[in-house]
Design a protein around this nucleic acid. Structure first.
Lengths: 154, 154
DNA sequence: GGATATTGATCAGTATGCTGACTATCAGTA
DNA sequence: TACTGATAGTCAGCATACTGATCAATATCC
């Protein structure tokens, strides 16, 4: 391991750093103020209306303690709602608001543009291969983080 | 872009999340308390004795405002020293301590083991390919983050 | 030489992400 | 039913990361 360029951990950090910067820049250019994490949460709430926070966390592999703050900010921005569940008084049901739906719709081009930009050094084939390898490595390491990906239990 | 598994940004976050978790677990198992960022900083200080904080930041692509805290903690743990530069009174020269050198030496197996574990789902060839693609994507996006990688200017 | 611009370091503020602890609630069982 | 264990959510505390600002010192240009 001569230098950090041979270390997958360093490369992971670096790629993520660039991915976040590109995402924020594209989204801001489009006139919005939403972080990658907030975007993923909002999109997942929209796709799974009424889900609780733990389920949301599992679907996008966040730690449950991180989710609290993320949702606080989505609620504060008027993009999502958090209300007590009727079935389980411990849980909160999450819903997207009309404003959240509007934001998601308008922000999508910027998000997709960001995904292209962060791969701009790679050909289409290389991009596919990178994503395939990342998915494979992630699948094998899923249980190694405190916040593994979980299927929605229906 | 059907779901987040098609988004390189999401995969980047996920892979990094696992990489950090694996690193911390391996290092803790070895009896040490050092984060990936602290390790990279310490190794780079050792390889470039007397460098200043901005140069260090450039070599490992950290934001300069992040470096301050990282070094605070390395100094507090007795692994590095920060002293005023004689050539430039704005700058601080960084040195590794004997304790830091000892720690680096003893921690290396855990760090290398972590790099293997985070790639355990991939063959050797796939691992090489993943790193190649990450390096390529990173090189093309280097200037897109606030903390690009910089060569040491000698 | 002196005004100007740049640079090294830090700071306040904000947002992830984690550990570990805690409360309230629920589920299963003796 | 009472006890036990698990679960949903939150909180305090800590460590990255970033934005934007400030201060001191150095470089540059006229």
């Amino acid at each position: 391991m001569k230098d950090h360029n041979d270390m997958p951990g360093h490369l992971a950090r670096r790629f993520q750093q660039i991915a976040v910067a590109v995402f924020l820049a594209e989204v801001e250019d489009a006139g919005f103020d939403l972080t990658p994490v907030q975007y993923a949460a909002l999109a997942t709430i929209k796709a799974n209306p009424g889900l609780d926070q733990v389920t949301l966390a599992g679907l996008i592999a966040y730690d449950r303690t991180t989710i609290t703050g993320v949702i606080d900010r989505l609620v504060q921005k008027g993009l999502a709602e958090r209300r007590p569940s009727s079935r389980d008084r411990r849980a909160r049901e999450l819903e997207i608001t009309d404003e959240g739906r509007r934001t998601l719709r308008k922000i999508t081009p910027a998000v997709e543009s960001a995904q292209r930009i962060m791969l701009r050094g790679l050909s289409a084939k290389e991009s596919e291969e990178l994503m395939r390898l990342l998915r494979k490595a992630i699948a094998a390491g899923n249980e190694l983080s405190r916040a593994p990906l979980r299927d929605a239990q229906v």
